[in-house]
């Protein structure tokens, strides 16, 4: 079990009477890229929110890097090495790329409490390395985020994961708002992550993208996991059948 990055057992979330997520058992192995698909409201984002500590689960167990975890908030998850790229980008528009990558965890030259002096050179260097690692091309990293295209912003958000040597990256529809070229740019970064052996959970509605990028596809329907498919054993038609409920995976029969 040493190659297991993340494991959830019986992960469940109820919002009052709404069963948004019902006993999800999930395993992510080293270097694996997994897509999570499903209709709107199927429980994809709920599932991710339990893992990243944005919400507190109703019941169930989460094991990350071999030990059980209970994140009090998204910061705890980030500390532990789970980096999330949200649909709504959490970037400060007036700051430049290194500032954004290191926001809240700045490199310090001289420690003077809140007035600690910033290590600009160190942050710049680490940023350049992170960008190189993810093959992100940004013409001028000292440019404010405000002056960048949507794709470049998304790349900056993703580059955070590489800069901090995160152990798991989660992306929630990273290309939903992007154009064709920008989408390609983001997909290239994802391929680089794959080549580097960094595990990824990708939420996406884009069938082509999913088949292009990941090893395994998980389908959620009405708060339940209904399929766990290796890419080689399935095709687009098949996945759609699971998403719409025309088909249910053998091991999940009995689910409503």
């Amino acid at each position: 079990m040493s190659d297991t990055i993340l494991e959830t057992e019986d992960l469940t979330k109820h919002y009052g009477g709404v069963h948004a997520l019902e006993s999800a058992d999930f395993v992510l192995r080293k270097g694996e890229h997994v897509a999570i698909m499903g209709d709107n409201g199927a429980g994809k984002s709920t599932f991710v929110r339990q893992i990243t500590g944005v919400e507190q689960r109703t019941r169930g167990k989460i094991t990350f890097m071999g030990s059980e975890v209970n994140f009090a908030g998204p910061l705890d998850a980030r500390e532990a090495g789970i980096e999330t790229v949200f649909q709504t980008l959490a970037l400060a528009d007036d700051l430049d790329v290194p500032d954004n990558l290191f926001l809240g965890r700045e490199k310090i030259l001289v420690n003077l409490g809140p007035f600690s002096i910033l290590d600009y050179r160190g942050m710049r260097k680490a940023t350049e390395e992170g960008l190189k690692k993810t093959a992100v091309k940004i013409p001028n990293i000292n440019n404010a985020i405000r002056n960048m295209s949507g794709g470049q912003r998304q790349c900056v958000a993703i580059a955070r994961t590489a800069t901090f040597h995160s152990k798991l990256t989660i992306m929630d529809e990273p290309t939903a708002a992007l154009g064709v070229q920008e989408t390609e740019q983001v997909e290239n970064i994802i391929r680089t992550l794959k080549d580097n052996g960094e595990p990824l959970i990708l939420i996406s509605h884009n069938m082509r993208q999913v088949f292009d990028l990941v090893d395994r596809i998980i389908v959620f329907r009405r708060g339940r996991m209904v399929a766990n498919l290796m890419k080689e054993d399935t095709d687009g038609q098949d996945v759609v059948a699971y998403i719409t409920g025309a088909k249910t995976g053998a091991e999940y029969v009995g689910a409503p």
């Binding site: 980008l89 959490a90 007036d94 926001l103 965890r105 809140p114 007035f115």
Partner: peptide, 22 residues
């Protein structure tokens, strides 16, 4: 040149992002 300054700009720029960044 200090963390104080960086956080001052970050909060004015995008308070939610600042909070999410810790």
């Amino acid at each position: 040149y200090t963390v104080y300054g960086k956080h001052t700009y970050a909060i004015g720029s995008n308070q939610d992002a600042a909070r999410m960044s810790g």
